[in-house]
Design a binder for these strands. Structure first.
Lengths: 243, 243
DNA sequence: CGTTTTCTTTGATCTGAGTCAATTTCTAGG
DNA sequence: CCTAGAAATTGACTCAGATCAAAGAAAACG
């Protein structure tokens, strides 16, 4: 084994492979058992990533998919007017880079929000890997199909909602994703800044701040520094509905 | 041949197959040459659809992908609060139903906005079709990958924009899609109602109305009934940027 | 450890877009 | 062709959330 996570700090939260978005492919590849830490490996597991490090930049040729093992990332793209916008957050188990499959280049920059680790699948080496092509393709189809579903849900809900609804939905989405990946559902680390959240949700950072304190006053959440506790999930759920 | 488009009306605008989103699959299937109009066919081409007719409803089991040959459709879903929301418009060449691939059910209703025709690919019959599975899968991957790219673009842009920017971007997106599919780029038919546009963009229908007249006054577009002419594409492009 | 810089919160004000209401225009049906 | 109902436009008013401003809390760094 060559796991170099370093810290045996028990606060490091990792997804189990069977809860990860890349799992369909890893399964076909036998979890890369025979090629761990080889530089030319198709699947490289648990690569450490420093806080602030960049996985890839826009217009860089597509060469790999990433799955987050631990930590978190943000996706940033620069729009036509030159402004930076956060276009996504990624948590353990999430899949990064799927747009590159059709585009052949990445379309945004992805930056680590904290000390993290990723599994890296070198797609360009996949076809020469001697694996069963049909199974690989089937796995890719499952993953892409899932991606389409999730993206569409995000889109259609955010556009129609006001500030409170967006923020309630944002918190619940973090919470649900975390739970789905076998991690604590009601205790979240907001590793991104308020400005990042605001940019992602299309709000001013002052609004994010105000709504978060409002939610605290209502007892929906507890927030201390960057640790967010979901105290009343049903209440938050209702907050996403009423207008 | 058994093309039953009926009307030889030369105003009916159709995409050519090589401009269609379903083409990667149709190509593999040899465009269904040998099975036109068979009821158990894998690929059924140019099925006529009445104005107002429904292709599928939410929660209905996934069984087919559709590609629009002519006409237009809207996707409608009902949110948690019970309100109907337009979540997408489809033009000739667009692919409908991709979310069903992973979900196994459709997630919204799709309704024809006018007299239309579609090509229908019975996915459940695809695997038993005796075709080369590897090629079929590769085609599906290309299509899904494309879908991921397009969806993400739509999402991230709409959320950050004000009313004028959204409407300018909406018009340009219709225009570009139309041009991309080999159809007139600067003369569009707005087959959907103002309310539909408003619902899709997350605006009030009065706002859509006001902005459209503003754009007319600025000479960016010409609008008579449901025929929209893009008079100044660069101007519209700028309108998507400045805030 | 103190200093600087960045991030966050809170308050005051302003504005874009929603809502309500009244016409006007379009469409479908007889 | 006329008429009823639906869709679209236009105006007046209101309010959610942006912007501006300033103070307070954390993080970064020599």
């Amino acid at each position: 084994m060559c796991e170099s996570t370093g810290a045996d700090d028990n606060t490091v939260l990792e997804v189990a492979c069977h809860d990860c978005g890349l799992d369909p492919l890893c399964e076909v590849l036998g979890y890369g058992k025979h090629e761990l830490c080889e530089t030319d490996a198709v699947l490289m597991r648990r690569q450490p990533v420093q806080r602030g490090a960049v996985l890839f930049r826009p217009d860089q040729p597509f060469y790999a998919l990433f799955a987050i093992k631990s930590g978190s990332f943000k996706a940033v793209s620069v729009d036509l007017s030159g402004k930076e916008r956060v276009v996504g957050f990624f948590l353990p188990g999430d899949l990064i880079g799927t747009e590159g499959i059709a585009n052949h280049v990445y379309s945004y920059a992805v930056r680590a929000l904290e000390e993290s680790s990723v599994c890296k699948l070198a797609v360009n080496r996949l076809l020469n890997s001697g694996q069963d092509t049909e199974k690989l393709q089937a796995a890719l189809i499952r993953m892409l199909g899932q991606e389409v579903v999730v993206n569409h849900l995000v889109t259609t809900s955010l556009i129609q909602q006001n500030a409170e609804q967006r923020i309630a939905a944002f918190i619940l989405s973090l919470s649900k994703r975390s739970g789905l990946r076998g991690m604590p559902q009601y205790q979240l680390i907001l590793s991104m800044s308020r400005s990042d959240i605001a940019s992602y949700l299309g709000l001013a950072r002052e609004t994010v701040s105000r709504v978060l304190t409002k939610f605290q006053n209502y007892g929906l959440i507890g927030l201390r520094k960057h640790v967010l506790k979901v105290l009343n999930p049903e209440g938050l759920e209702k907050a996403t509905i009423f207008r």
